[in-house]
């Protein structure tokens, strides 16, 4: 499943996408994020299986633009810390 966390407003699209097929719930991204945007919890979208996966915390979902702002890559910047930390390449972002 592609879980898109975030929103779209007049200034752009701000989504962190977690590919739950790739995510193994290791939590490396949680450690890597300086803004504490991510957490590893039981898959809320598949309550029957209930695998542990990375997701964006409720507190950050409506302010991703600002939470991830300091790590926002504009030309030649490194990828977001969470993306760099993820060995499975499970995390992408939309801006």
């Amino acid at each position: 499943m592609l879980a898109n966390y975030g929103y779209k407003d007049g200034s752009g699209e701000y989504f962190i996408t977690v590919d739950t097929e790739k995510c193994n719930g290791c939590g490396d991204c949680v450690e890597a994020c300086p803004a504490k945007v991510l957490e590893v919890i039981e898959d809320q979208y598949d309550p029957i299986e209930g695998d542990m996966i990375a997701s964006v915390t409720d507190a950050h979902r409506k302010k991703i633009k600002y939470s991830c702002g300091p790590g926002k890559p504009v030309s030649n910047r490194p990828p977001l810390p969470c993306m760099a930390a993820c060995a499975q390449d499970a995390i992408t972002h939309s801006w």
């Binding site: 499943m1 592609l2 879980a3 407003d9 989504f15 979208y45 598949d46």
Partner: peptide, 12 residues
């Protein structure tokens, strides 16, 4: 009926 991709707009 299993979710494969989703997007939610609850900001406005």
């Amino acid at each position: 009926g299993k979710v494969t991709n989703f997007l939610m707009n609850d900001k406005c």
